[in-house]
């Protein structure tokens, strides 16, 4: 049992030393210790961690957002709390039941949520890039065979937006290319995938992030960052009109 405390780093230094000395003379205990270590590695690397599905994340998030109409109708502050608590129960059910039949505006909002969630996740789980490289001639070929399209990768180092790398991501119900650029310490994620739709360049603010969405050469692009809106739009402009080298 003390071996568990030792493995978990929960013993005081004196006990630790005693255990280590004991291992030298007791093969049985050091065997237990070895198998504990092996077990730990197996548990942590065995992809046993179950991450929350994106739909659940969106559902929980939307549960805490009173709808605009409700907000404007709100006469008394305490009504809001009743509404929030009540809507929590049914909005969550409604969201997944009618997601497919929602008007375009709401579908768009879901996409904004999804892009934001992907961006936040990429920063949270130390999984920013699958292929770390500042060389677009390394990043672009990496996607070959992983996606059914070839994403365009830009070199904007001279303009102050160095490439960090690329990542496979999952947005809008499909595998997409995730390209990561930086501006000073601000991470910019660009998601892109083929689509027939035509969307005019549109800046959006959501949960403290700035997003820009546009279509170009048959691809839908979403750029998101905590960078200020002006510099993000400058970045998008550069992506749309890449400088010739």
């Amino acid at each position: 049992m003390l071996i568990d405390g030792y493995v978990d780093g929960e013993l005081d230094p004196i006990r630790n030393r005693e255990i280590e000395q004991h291992f030298q003379t007791c093969p049985a205990c050091s065997t237990v210790f070895d198998s504990h270590r092996v077990l730990r590695t197996a548990l942590r690397t065995g992809s046993l961690y179950r991450t929350a599905p994106l739909a659940l994340r969106n559902r929980v998030r939307s549960s805490f957002k009173p709808t605009p109409t409700r907000k404007s109708l709100m006469g008394l502050p305490q009504w809001r709390w009743v509404a929030v608590a009540a809507s929590l129960a049914f909005v969550s059910v409604l969201t997944w039941r009618v997601a497919l039949f929602l008007p375009a505006e709401t579908a768009d909002h879901l996409l904004i949520e999804e892009v934001t969630a992907s961006h936040v996740r990429s920063l949270m789980v130390s999984h920013l890039v699958d292929i770390p490289s500042s060389d677009r001639h390394v990043v672009k070929p990496w996607f070959t065979g992983k996606l059914d399209f070839a994403p365009s990768v830009a070199d904007l180092t001279e303009q102050g937006f160095p490439l960090v790398g690329g990542r496979l991501d999952y947005v809008n119900g499909r595998a997409v290319a995730g390209l990561v650029y930086k501006r000073r310490e601000h991470v910019i994620n660009v998601f892109l995938w083929p689509s027939a739709a035509t969307v005019e360049t549109r800046p959006i603010a959501h949960q403290g992030y700035h997003l820009v969405c546009w279509t170009q050469s048959g691809m839908t692009h979403w750029a998101i960052s905590d960078l200020n809106s002006r510099e993000l739009q400058e970045f998008v402009h550069l992506l749309q009109n890449p400088p010739s080298h």
């Binding site: 179950r50 991450t51 599905p53 659940l56 929980v60």
Partner: peptide, 28 residues
């Protein structure tokens, strides 16, 4: 902490859908 919440719920219920329900209920 939603991933942690779901991970625990998933391992306790051993079922995807039940785990989602548990997390939503817990968030409420």
């Amino acid at each position: 902490h939603l991933d942690a919440a779901y991970n625990l719920a998933r391992w306790l219920t051993r079922n995807d859908q039940d785990a989602e329900d548990m997390v939503q209920e817990a968030c409420l």
